[in-house]
């Protein structure tokens, strides 16, 4: 979520809560009475901190039921950010900055990781969407990338076949059409109206260089770099008749779209990968927090 001016009330309230908590902590820690989680002030810090943690965790549940009219999800998300940011300092105040042993220590480490990963995620959500918008103008729906690639491959085959007269390629066969033990690839001959001899260099380039890239794009492929791709197409141009220029431009565009899809996949991964750490550890931490509360109250 982008933290902008609309967050001002939340930021102000959070800062006020933090200030009050710290202000209350100073006389508490400066006094002669023992400090720690078991004391009354410690329990108050712990209760408020846990309540914040619980609310923050409930966001996951809220998102499971997006149409429940229990407050806009944006509001929940803002609460998640700001109350989550407050929860760790409050827990530190609850523990009087003592990391603890055993279960408590594990919980604190988990909390620290979740806390840091949360900040990291917030930063990613600031940075990546803007980069995606700027660097991937041909962005598509993430789950549709595979399908779009199939279409691009088919389009590229068609362009080359039309320009070069004929093109023998292997295409994947749908699962249903493949009998047991048979190959999942079929060789097909696509034909067009172009001259086979004139288009031979283009066909060779396509089959040896470009088609493997379009079929299975990888960042290590030379065509994954826009500069290298421009150089490769630049070398190809003098070898083919001027009449095939449009075909080359179309193929360049397909390579560009492939590069953008590669970029989108990578950035999408980065944008969401941190959740793999953040979400499970959050639940683990909440579980340990409940155990910690039960044990602390019971024993």
């Amino acid at each position: 979520m982008l933290i902008d001016r609309t967050h001002k009330p939340w930021a102000t309230a959070s800062a006020a809560i933090l200030l009050i908590a710290v202000a209350a902590y100073v006389p508490y820690v400066a006094g002669s009475a023992p400090v720690g989680g078991g004391t009354l002030p410690g329990l108050v810090y712990g209760t408020i901190g846990f309540a914040f943690m619980a609310f923050v965790t409930l966001l996951a549940l809220r998102k499971k039921f997006p149409i429940w009219r229990i407050g806009r999800t944006t509001t929940w998300m803002r609460g998640h950010l700001w109350l989550g940011a407050l929860s760790f300092p409050l827990i530190l105040l609850h523990a009087a900055f003592f990391w603890g042993h055993g279960l408590t220590s594990v919980m604190m480490w988990l909390f620290a990781i979740v806390y840091v990963s949360g900040f990291f995620g917030a930063w990613l959500q600031h940075a990546i969407p803007r980069r995606l918008m700027r660097d991937v103008p041909m962005e598509t729906i993430y789950d549709e990338i595979g399908h779009v690639r199939e279409q691009l491959l088919d389009e590229a085959d068609g362009i080359v076949a039309a320009a070069c007269g004929k093109l023998e390629v292997q295409i994947s066969v749908p699962d249903a059409a493949v009998s047991s033990g048979a190959s999942a690839l079929a060789t097909v001959m696509r034909t067009g109206s172009g001259d086979a001899d004139d288009g031979a260099p283009l066909r060779d380039f396509y089959l040896k260089e470009m088609r493997p890239f379009v079929q299975a794009p990888s960042v290590s492929h030379p065509l994954a770099s826009a500069m290298t791709a421009a150089a490769m197409f630049g070398k190809l141009r003098p070898l083919v008749p001027a009449a095939l220029e449009q075909a080359i431009v179309d193929l360049e565009n397909i390579c560009e779209e492939e590069r953008q899809l590669l970029r989108q996949r990578r950035m999408h991964g980065v944008l969401h990968a941190w959740l793999i750490v953040h979400v499970p550890l959050s639940f683990a931490m909440m579980l340990l927090a409940v155990v910690h509360i039960v044990m602390a109250l019971r024993y």
Binding site: L2, T6, L59, P66, R69, R72, T73, T74, Q125
Partner: peptide, 10 residues
């Protein structure tokens, strides 16, 4: 609209 209501990021 539900789509707007459910967007966590405004």
């Amino acid at each position: 609209p539900s789509c707007v209501y459910a967007c966590p990021h405004a």
